[in-house]
Design a protein around this nucleic acid. Sequence first.
DNA 1: GTCTATAGGCAGATAGAC
DNA 2: GTCTATCTGCCTATAGAC
Lengths: 187, 187
Amino acid sequence: MAWKEQHKHNTRQKILRSAAKLFTKQGFDHVGINDVMKDAGLTRGAFYAHFNSKSELYAEAIIAAAIQTGDKLNPDNPEAPSLDQLVQFYLSMEHRQGEHFRCPLAFLATDITQRDEQVRDAYTLVFKGFLKHLTAHLQRRNGDLDRTRSMQVAVMMIGGLAISRAVNDEELAKNLLISCHQNLLDH
Amino acid sequence: MAWKEQHKHNTRQKILRSAAKLFTKQGFDHVGINDVMKDAGLTRGAFYAHFNSKSELYAEAIIAAAIQTGDKLNPDNPEAPSLDQLVQFYLSMEHRQGEHFRCPLAFLATDITQRDEQVRDAYTLVFKGFLKHLTAHLQRRNGDLDRTRSMQVAVMMIGGLAISRAVNDEELAKNLLISCHQNLLDH
DNA sequence: GTCTATAGGCAGATAGAC
DNA sequence: GTCTATCTGCCTATAGAC
C-alpha cells in the first residue's frame, strides 16, 4: 500500500503548489477552494481529504511558497547567488510583476494581519528564516549589529517591493526599487 | 434647501469616517457595507444615495483616513511635530496596535494590490503626498538626493510598521521597529 | 480519495414604500 | 434620504455514492 500513500502525498503537494501560486497572486479572500482544486486538476469535494480548513491550507501554502525559493537565499547552497545578486532580483520590476516568482513576505504582508494564529505563525516562521539567511550573508560585525542590520535590509527589501506593488505608477514604482537598492549598496 | 444639502454632506462625512476606521482596521474584504452603515448609525439601503459602489467608498475612505492625520505630516502646519517626533510615533508599538491611529499606507499596503484602478489611484495619491511631506522635512541637499532619501525613509517607516504588524511575535516586532528607527537616526 | 449534490450562510446591489 | 424586503450570486464545509 506504499504507492497509495505516495499518491496521496503527491496529490497533497500538487494542491500546495497551486495554493501557493494562487494565494500569493490574489490573496486569501479572492481565492476559493474551488479555484485551488481546479488548478490542481481536482474538484472541491476532494479537498477535505487533505486539509481540515482553508486557513490550514493557507498556513502551509505560505511555507511552501517560501521553500520553493528559499534555496536562493540559503548561503550554504553552492548555487545560491550573492547578496547583491539576490537584492538585484528581489527589488526588480520583474519581481514586482510577479509572473514567475512572488515572495510571500512582500506579497502577503498586510493580508496576514487579518488571519488566525496558525497563519500568522507560518508567516513569522518564514520571516525569521529570511532574517537568518540575511544575517549569514552579512556576518562581518558582532552578532547584535548584524541582527539589527539584517532587519533593516529585510524591511528595505520586503517593504520596498510591497509598496512598489501598491502604487499605480510604473515610474514611481521603478524609482522606489532603485532607491531601496541604492540604500543597500551604500552600506 | 441649503440645510438639506448640509445634512447630506454631514451624513456622507459620517459614512466616510466609519469607513476609514473599519477599512484600516479590518481590510476591504472583511468589512461589509452593512458594517459601515451600522457604525454610521444608518442601514444598508441608504448607502447608495451617497456612493455608487463599495469600491468607490474604499477609494474615498483611503483619502479620508490620510487627511485625518495628514496635518501631522505637513511641515507648514505650526503644530506639526518634527520629523524625529513623527518617526518616533509612526514606528511605535502603539501605532502597530492601531487603537487610535492607523496610517492607511502601512495598514492597507498589500490589500491595495487586489483592487481596481480608482482605489489604487487613491493610494498612490496619498503616498505621493507622504513623499512630498518627507522631502519638505529633509530639504538639505539637492532635489534628486532628497527625493531618493525621502523614498528610503518612507519605505523604512511604512514597510517597517507593516511587517511588524504581520509577525506574530511581540519581541520581534519591537526589535523591528527599533531597528528601523535606528536606521533613520543614523542619517 | 474523489466525485456530485447540497446545506447554510453572507454580501453587494436594487426596488418600492414613506 | 432612509427604510425594509428581496434578488442574485458566491463561499466554506459536509453527505453520500462509487
